[in-house]
Design a binder for these strands. Structure first.
Lengths: 210, 210
DNA sequence: GCGGGAGTTAAACAGTTGTTTTAAATGATG
DNA sequence: CATCATTTAAAACAACTGTTTAACTCCCGC
């Protein structure tokens, strides 16, 4: 088994297990045994469990922000005024399409993102801010431009409202979908849910009275 | 040290530590030592760590839902059409005022509520649904009545959007507030943030296109 | 005054955790 | 083919986890 093979197998197993159970609830022994590699391989290749967690995030966050940057480049280049719905739509379309094209599971990433915020891993938050803060600030800046009437502080609070609605909903997507299917018999796909989320989030950003 | 004293001290310590670090990240030894009681006291009085977690939630969720029910009773009794803003406002006012009147910390409870959803404690979710599901369904029903134009499935998705925005934002309130104060020099109080959240959440519930 | 039960205590239990060590195997390079 | 660093392997490490045990204290009702 080559090195890259072992590294990839560990990342695959860790990603799935973290999303399913959380970080502290997933032991290195569970990861290595489902990956079919030796226990010591994690500390050998990644150094520690913390660094493994960061590596899992890096592997999906880098292609995501790259795709988002490219999308923003294109929108800016083709000129035209950037509307709120377009920007929010871009964000979701990239997250949904860009990742699943690569055979990656967008729900799983939303779950991991939610964990990054709610599980108590200070190192993870610092890592993400340091590595991807620029992309985040660029998107936020463009969105603020599209909302000239909203004062900065209110805007940023609403940005967090949107972030919360998105991360919370999509990271619990399966559970919510199951409840709705049971109560209404109507199943909703992930793209449908995002179609519902775009106008809702946009409306929240744009309210006048604030 | 009387029994109630020990029980209360354990609950106080557990509540603060859980909100600060999470469930699995908080050991019984940390709880009992900060509470100043013996390690075995938790298993003696509560049975297990799981039941301690449930007891912590029961202690603040019961007064909260009681106050919410009372508020809803009053609104229904005084007649008048129930508007979306009023219902959402009631929810927040009760959560903020009703709890802090009792000397309880509303942010901490939002943090705990967030954990209940994102940490992987199946027993907790089941416990909360079983104990407080009726209050939740009553509130959701009244809110749905105030939104006659919105189809049920869309309504429930938006309810989760609102839940996510609220829990996510308020459970990270301190962190977000610190960032905004650093970047804009403007500090926002918790009531101010809720004043921003009420119209934003209401707008999200009411959007037409969807 | 005294049995008895509720409450507390210190100690030990068995299991799991992340990490390290030491040795063997592998595989590319000279 | 020999050599060397890289990679895997099994085992042990020390620390920590939730829970249980058994002895002990205390107070209340008889």
């Amino acid at each position: 088994m080559s090195q890259t093979d072992t590294v990839t197998r560990i990342l695959d197993a860790a990603e799935a297990l973290f999303a399913e159970r959380g970080f502290t609830e997933t032991s290195l022994r569970t990861i290595t045994s489902t990956a079919g590699v030796n226990l010591a391989a994690v500390n050998y290749h990644f150094g520690s469990k913390k660094e493994l967690i960061q590596a899992v995030f890096e592997r999906f966050l880098t292609p995501f922000t790259d795709a988002l940057e490219a999308e923003l480049d294109q929108r800016v280049a083709t000129g035209g005024t950037l509307r709120v719905e377009d920007l929010v739509g871009s964000l979701f379309r990239v997250g949904l399409g860009g990742l699943s094209e690569r055979g990656l599971d967008p729900q799983r990433f939303m779950r991991l993102l939610g964990l990054a915020y709610t599980q108590f891993q200070g190192h993870l938050r610092r890592f993400i801010v340091a590595r991807y803060g620029n992309s985040y600030r660029r998107f936020a800046g463009l969105l603020a431009q599209a909302l000239p009437g909203v004062d900065p502080v209110t805007f940023y609070w609403r940005l967090y409202f949107m972030l919360g609605a998105t991360i919370f909903t999509l990271s619990s997507y399966d559970a919510i979908e199951a409840i709705l299917r049971e109560d209404f018999g109507a199943q909703s796909s992930l793209p449908e849910t995002l179609e519902r989320l775009v106008p809702a989030a946009s409306a929240m950003l744009k309210v006048e009275a604030g």
